[in-house]
C-alpha cells in the first residue's frame, strides 16, 4: 500500500531514467520508464542499446551487461558510457541461469543490458517482478527479435553508412531509421537518427539537416 501511494506521488521524471534528447520523440515519457523491458532489434541494435543507456550511466547509474561477452568496450566508451560503471556478467548455461543472473543484477544496477537466450520468455515472469520492484530497465538486444515480449520495442529498420566507397574511405557515420512500437503507443513512431554522427554523437537527422541548411544559408547570404 505504501509503495503504491509512493509511486503515484513521484513525478514522471523520477520514474524515468534519462536518455539523450535525440531519443525523446520515440518515447512517450521524459526517458525510459523504470521497471520496463525495452527491446532493441535490427542491424544497429547494439549501438542503439548502448546509446540509450549512456545518459543514465553518465549521471551515476551502473550498467550491467549480462551474457554478451563480445560487447565492444571501445564502442561503449565512444557512445558516452563511463567504463568505470560498466560490469559484465557471464550467463552461460541456458535460460534458468540467465534469469537468475539477470534477477541478481537487477538488485544493484539501474540498467541491465542482455541478449535473452532461446526460451527466455518462459522464465521472464520472475525477472519482470524483480524489475518492477527495483525500478530497473531491461534492455533486450537481438539481431532479429528481442527474444522476450517488450513494453517498448525499438527496431532499427534501414541502415545507411557514410564514408565507405569502392575500395576507398572508411566508416564514418551511420543513418538509422528507428521504429518504435509498444503497448502504450497507439501507432508506431518512426525517426531517422545519426547513430553515430560524424562527430561521434547521436543526433536526429532532421535536426542535423536543418543545422546544415542554416549554415549553408549563412554561407550563401554572406556570399550574396
Amino acid at each position: 500500500m505504501v509503495t503504491s501511494s509512493f509511486v503515484s506521488l513521484t513525478s514522471a521524471r523520477d520514474r524515468c531514467l534519462p536518455v539523450d534528447e535525440a531519443f525523446l520523440p520515440l518515447l512517450a515519457d521524459a526517458g525510459m520508464q523504470r521497471g520496463r523491458v525495452v527491446g532493441c532489434t535490427g542491424p544497429a541494435a547494439m549501438s542503439l542499446a548502448l546509446a540509450l543507456a549512456s545518459r543514465s550511466v553518465v549521471v551515476g547509474s551502473w550498467l550491467a551487461v549480462v551474457g554478451i561477452p563480445m560487447l565492444g568496450v571501445e564502442a561503449a566508451a565512444e557512445l558516452g558510457i563511463p567504463l568505470s560503471r560498466l560490469v559484465m556478467i557471464d550467463a552461460v548455461g541456458g535460460p534458468a541461469v540467465w534469469a537468475e543472473r539477470v534477477a541478481a543484477a537487477a538488485d544493484g544496477f539501474d540498467i541491465v543490458m542482455t541478449r535473452p537466450p532461446a526460451g527466455a520468455e518462459r522464465v521472464l515472469r520472475k525477472v519482470r517482478t524483480r524489475l518492477r520492484a527495483r525500478g530497473v530497465v531491461l534492455l533486450a538486444v537481438g539481431p532479429t527479435s528481442a527474444g522476450v515480449s517488450c513494453d517498448l520495442e525499438l527496431a532499427t529498420t534501414s541502415v545507411a553508412w557514410d564514408g565507405l566507397g569502392q575500395g576507398s574511405g572508411y566508416l564514418i557515420a551511420r543513418r538509422v531509421t528507428v521504429r518504435a512500437c509498444g503497448r502504450r503507443m497507439p501507432r508506431p513512431i518512426e525517426l531517422d537518427l545519426w547513430l553515430p554522427a560524424p562527430d561521434g554523437r547521436v543526433e536526429s537527422c532532421a535536426r542535423r539537416n536543418s543545422q546544415l541548411d542554416d549554415s549553408a544559408g549563412a554561407v550563401l547570404s554572406r556570399a550574396g
Binding site: G60, S61, W62, A64, R85, V87, I89, D90, E100, R101, A104, A105, D107, G108, F109, D110
Partner: peptide, 16 residues
Amino acid sequence: ADHDAARAIVRLSGLA
C-alpha cells in the same frame, strides 16, 4: 547507486 552496485557485484561473484 555505487553502494548498490558494489553489493550486487559481491553477491553475483558469490553466485556465479
